[in-house]
């Protein structure tokens, strides 16, 4: 359960960096504090972590880019 939680939080952190177009749009609109999340992408990554244990394990072991 803890591992699943860490995987989810690692994915969430990364997704904040991932959507560059959205990030740029929010920055240009002075909405830098807006907590944007790509829920569809997030759900998909969570499912991947559940489906393939090795992928979840390796993702968690990498400090970058999920730090």
């Amino acid at each position: 359960m803890d591992a699943e939680k860490s995987f989810n939080s690692a994915v969430q952190n990364k997704l904040k960096k991932y959507d560059e177009d959205i990030s740029s749009l929010l920055e240009n609109s002075d909405l830098t504090e807006f907590d944007y999340r790509n829920l569809a992408q997030l759900d998909r990554l969570k499912a991947i972590g559940t489906r393939w244990p090795l992928l979840a394990e390796l993702t968690l072991s990498q400090r970058e880019p999920f730090a």
Binding site: Q41, L45, L55, T59, Q62, P65
Partner: peptide
Amino acid sequence: TLWQAQYS
């Protein structure tokens, strides 16, 4: 999908 997120 995972690599798109990890190695964007």
